[in-house]
Computed example of a mutant assay.
Amino acid sequence: MTSEVEELIALKNGSHKAFEAIYNRYAGKLYNFIMTISHGDKYMSEEVIQSAFVRLWETKERIDPEKSILFYLSTISRNLLFNRYQRQTIEFLYQKLMINEQKPYHRQTENEIDRKWLESFVDELIDQLPPARKKIFILRKKEDLSTREIAEAMNISVSTVETQLSLAMKFMKAEFAKNYDKLFLAVFFLLI
């Protein structure tokens, strides 16, 4: 390959050699970039970089050879990292909700109402998801199946499962943001 443009054209056409060259050239730079914005989380950085290159391969036909591949990969990596952090936040809130649900019934009436409201709110959001996305979300969050187990159970690819989970989390985050005041109060009173 004599230039990056030719390399990107070859990648668009399915060249494994071009993909490997791009990976070797940019994986280290992307790793350092993600390490910086993840505050040194090595595991998260490695996961994000691997996912970013998987996404690059899956979307290779849409690459514009005239644009910077490093910028494209950086954007994918940053978005993947932020999506993982959002997912962790929602999982944390959901786990707190489940832990509180298992505690013996001796809470004050207001706290019980807040817990039920929060649980109901999350269930309503789950019900608003498209059927396949809803099923994937429930299998992952309520039945604690891995993305690979879900993919096998539903006979779909792991990347489809990850994409659907990402879209579900993005929807949940947007709905949580719309109702931030109510949710903050409900979670605050449940945790004290």
Rank of each mutant, 00 (worst) to 15 (best):
I138H: 08
E124M: 03
D181A: 12
T163Q: 12
E152W: 06
S146F: 02
E143R: 00
A168I: 13
Q128H: 05
P131S: 08
M169C: 12
K135W: 04
D127Q: 14
K170I: 09
R115E: 14
L118E: 11
E162Y: 09
L125F: 02
S159Q: 11
D181W: 00
A174T: 14
L167S: 12
R148Q: 09
E124D: 09
L139M: 15
I126Y: 06
T163F: 13
I156D: 05
L167R: 15
S120A: 08
I126N: 05
L167D: 15
S159A: 10
E149F: 00
K141E: 09
V161Y: 14
E175I: 01
E162P: 07
L145E: 09
S146N: 05
R140C: 01
L139G: 02
A168H: 11
F121N: 01
L125T: 01
K141I: 03
F171G: 03
I156M: 13
P131R: 10
I138Y: 09
I138L: 08
W117F: 12
M154G: 01
D114R: 13
L118T: 12
Q128P: 00
L129D: 09
A132E: 15
D123N: 12
S166V: 08
K170G: 03
F176V: 04
T163E: 12
L165D: 03
K178D: 08
I150T: 07
Q164C: 06
R133C: 02
N155C: 04
M169G: 06
M154Q: 13
F176N: 05
R148C: 00
E124N: 11
E175L: 04
L125R: 06
F137G: 00
K116Q: 15
D181N: 09
F121H: 05
K178L: 08
F171H: 14
L129H: 09
E119F: 15
K141N: 08
E119A: 15
K142C: 01
P130W: 09
E149V: 00
K178M: 07
A177D: 11
Y180G: 01
L118G: 04
L129T: 07
I150D: 06
V161S: 02
D127I: 01
F137V: 00
T147N: 10
V158I: 13
D127V: 01
E124L: 05
Q164D: 14
Y180N: 11
K134D: 03
S166G: 15
E143D: 10
M172E: 02
K142H: 04
S120L: 09
K178N: 10
L118R: 08
I126S: 04
N179P: 01
A168L: 13
K173R: 14
M172W: 04
K142P: 00
Q164R: 15
I136F: 07
I138G: 02
E152H: 12
L125H: 02
Y180P: 00
N111F: 10
D181K: 03
E175T: 02
S120Q: 14
P131Y: 03
L165R: 06
L165W: 07
L118Y: 11
F171E: 13
M172S: 08
S146E: 05
L129G: 07
S166I: 07
V158F: 11
K173M: 11
V158N: 13
K135A: 06
L165H: 08
A151S: 11
Q164T: 03
L118K: 06
K182C: 00
A168T: 13
